[in-house]
């Protein structure tokens, strides 16, 4: 399972970077969200893939009865997904406004701030 996920993560990173190198701003945003997914999956895989119960101790006990799954990577991914949701929603609004104002979705035509 780890090997499979490693390839998936690598594929996601490759696809994300490829999309970001395209000139269209829409593809740029798609690339960015792919990168975020790759990072989330990376955390998931590195947090050890184990099958286990929720990390809860029954009332009166002092330690879990069966092997538990580490809840922390899941909490991290959940937080990262929520943040990514907000950021990407903003990015979509931004590229729409930029498209309307500049009149193109080609990054090569958006150089006015570099050449001054």
């Amino acid at each position: 399972m780890e090997t499979f996920l490693a390839f998936v993560i690598g594929g996601l990173y490759a696809a994300g970077l490829y999309m970001m190198m395209r000139r269209s701003i829409v593809k740029l945003i798609i690339g960015l969200s792919l990168l975020a997914h790759a990072a989330n999956l990376l955390i998931f895989t590195l947090g050890r893939l184990t099958r286990g119960e929720p990390a809860l101790i029954p009332p009166g006990g002092i330690r879990p009865e069966r092997p538990i799954a580490d809840p922390l990577p899941q909490a991290l991914i959940l937080t990262a997904i929520v943040i990514g949701f907000g950021v990407q929603a903003f990015a979509v609004v931004l590229i729409k406004r930029a498209y309307q104002t500049v009149g193109t979705d080609d990054l090569d035509d958006m150089k006015s701030t570099d050449t001054g």
Partner: peptide
């Protein structure tokens, strides 16, 4: 995204 991946790997 890099920072997040680095934090995950560190964990």
């Amino acid at each position: 995204a890099l920072f997040l991946a680095a934090v995950g790997s560190l964990y």
